[in-house]
Simulated scan of single mutants.
Amino acid sequence: MLTTAQIKPISYLKANAAEVLQHLTECREPMVITQNGEAKAVLQDVASYEKTQETLALLKILAMGQADVDAGRVHTMDEVMDMIRAKKKNK
């Protein structure tokens, strides 16, 4: 849940950009920027953004894996080991 400290008008961002960046880096909490009383953007520090992107990538991999399972595109461990052994013999 956002607190009022995390919601700022664009005029505040313009007047206090350095302070906002420092706050984002120290607190690692996103800040919602409003324009004419409406939420227009979310700012966050780079480390938090990168962590979010990594999490999304992992979730996408999990979803792709689940889709493969649901579609029956799976192999038993013995089948996989046989495929690996066959590749090694062909080298």
Rank of each mutant, 00 (worst) to 15 (best):
N36S: 15
V20I: 09
T25E: 12
A67Y: 04
T55W: 10
Q22M: 08
T34Q: 00
Q22A: 10
A63D: 13
M31W: 00
K60S: 10
K88Q: 14
R73D: 05
M83P: 01
A63C: 07
K60G: 04
Y49C: 07
G37N: 01
Q53R: 11
D82I: 04
V46I: 15
V32K: 07
K88A: 11
R28Q: 13
H75N: 12
M83L: 15
I61V: 12
V80S: 02
K88T: 04
S11C: 05
I61P: 01
G72P: 02
K8I: 06
K87N: 04
S48H: 01
L56F: 11
V42C: 08
E29G: 03
K14H: 14
K40D: 09
V69R: 05
E19H: 08
A67V: 02
L43D: 01
G65I: 03
M77T: 12
Q6Y: 02
L24N: 02
Q44E: 14
D45V: 04
L56N: 06
T25M: 07
I10W: 08
A57S: 07
T4Y: 14
M81G: 04
H75W: 09
Q6D: 04
E19L: 09
E50N: 13
M81I: 14
D78Q: 12
K14Y: 13
V74C: 08
T4H: 14
A71T: 00
D82H: 10
N36C: 12
H23V: 07
E26R: 11
M64G: 07
A18Y: 06
D70V: 00
M64I: 11
M77G: 10
K89C: 02
T55A: 10
T52I: 09
K60H: 09
K60W: 03
E54R: 09
H75P: 00
L43V: 00
K8N: 03
A67D: 08
D78F: 09
Q53L: 09
N16M: 03
A5D: 15
A18F: 06
K40I: 11
D82M: 09
D70Q: 11
M1Q: 11
V74M: 09
Q6T: 01
T55K: 08
L2E: 06
A39K: 07
M31Q: 00
Q6H: 02
A47W: 11
I33D: 00
G72T: 01
E38V: 11
E26H: 06
G72A: 04
P9D: 03
K60I: 01
A63I: 06
E50P: 00
V42T: 08
C27Q: 15
N16S: 05
K51D: 14
Y49I: 02
A15R: 14
Q66G: 10
E50A: 11
M77H: 13
M1H: 14
L13W: 04
G72N: 02
C27T: 15
L2P: 00
A39Q: 06
A41N: 06
V20S: 01
V42S: 07
H23Q: 15
V69A: 09
Q22N: 13
V42M: 13
E54G: 01
T52W: 12
Q22L: 11
A41M: 14
K60R: 15
D82T: 05
K88D: 08
V20Y: 00
